[in-house]
Design a protein around this nucleic acid. Structure first.
Lengths: 189, 189
DNA sequence: TATCTCCTAGAACGATCATTCTAGGCGAAT
DNA sequence: ATTCGCCTAGAATGATCGTTCTAGGAGATA
């Protein structure tokens, strides 16, 4: 796959993290990615909306891999909870609270106005839910309960990102990780 | 307080819910509020940013009153959890998933780019945290634990809004309410 | 009636937006 | 050597953005 295309997607993802969809201009993308306008429309004929959907899908898949890596390293889904939340908290601190999940940003911002972006975010969330659900089910939860709990975990981390960025503090996010650990442990008991 | 000012704030809040901060133009505000541009700058000399901060503060206070009303009606902070999440879920369904919390929207969107809006969202969240914390402490939790749990509840509902709007379904949001109920019950036990 | 303050009213401004368009560079295939 | 397809390059375009500005209406006070 083209290097230029990669640079465009990466740069757009970074800009989305701190500025959102409507707050990011294609001029900023061209500068940040060091690529001309023509290249954006060559790779994404649908313009900004198509580019945005690609960013959601590709960075959503990357976050899923990251979660799976952390979960496998932790070994146990119960212990994976604080590992995951603390990892996210560390990343936030290291980037001065910029490195928030872009999918959650865009999902809230444009789900009611840009249908293709809403659909892209739904498919990303579906992958996340399944990744967590699978591990919860493997630990003994029935499918329905595992799915519901997986969604609560996703909601908690995304809402936790919101509070952390606003407050410029990861204290709450880490505590929420502990709460999720308790919830998972109780469900499995 | 001026009727026109109220109309401007209300209209802006409604537009922020579905389109976010950057996605809402002042022209839309003038049309939706039936007020001229001059009135916006008369009441909010700081322009869009000052208007946005006012919207956050005023609708944040309204949400807090709503929570306190629901919590008082439920009587018990444990039972208040599903009441609160289900109430939010009902509102979402009735408005075709438009009526999401505008504070969470704006907080994620512009916390890194518009410092006055970030500060406004922080003070709103502080009020919410305190409202929940007070009730948890009254039920027997020590202050630190009550604060941490209050923040997790806020994170869960805001993240739940995100999932619900994206998926156009309130199933997960209601289930998360049950999970928060379990978490509160376990903490109090 | 005259004056003052508060607010309405919307045209005008320069900047910036997403998008379109024309032109050309470059490597592979013929 | 020539052609062809992929991609780069950025100027041009029309729309829209937030903001500023001038002008005047409405009601209270004198």
């Amino acid at each position: 796959m083209s290097e230029t295309r990669k640079r465009i997607v990466t740069a757009t993802g970074e800009l989305f993290r701190s500025q959102g969809f409507n707050g990011t201009s294609l001029k900023q993308v061209t500068e940040h990615a060091d690529a001309p306008t023509g290249s954006i429309y060559h790779f994404f004929p649908g313009g900004k909306e198509e580019l945005g959907a690609a960013v959601l899908r590709e960075s959503g898949a990357a976050y899923q891999q990251l979660f799976e890596l952390i979960a496998d390293e932790a070994g146990d889904i119960v212990d994976a909870m604080p590992a995951f939340f603390n990892g996210a908290a560390d990343a936030l601190e290291e980037t001065d609270f910029i490195d928030i999940c872009p999918i959650g940003n865009i999902a809230r911002e444009v789900a009611s106005t840009h249908e293709p972006l809403r659909e892209a975010s739904v498919s990303v969330f579906a992958g996340w839910t399944e990744a967590i659900q699978t591990r919860l089910a493997a630990a003994g939860l029935d499918a329905a309960e595992a799915e519901a709990l997986a969604n609560t975990i996703i909601a908690a981390i995304e809402g936790g990102f919101m509070l952390a960025r606003a407050r410029r503090s990861t204290t709450d996010l880490r505590a929420t990780g502990t709460h999720m650990q308790q919830l998972v442990a109780a469900a499995l008991a």
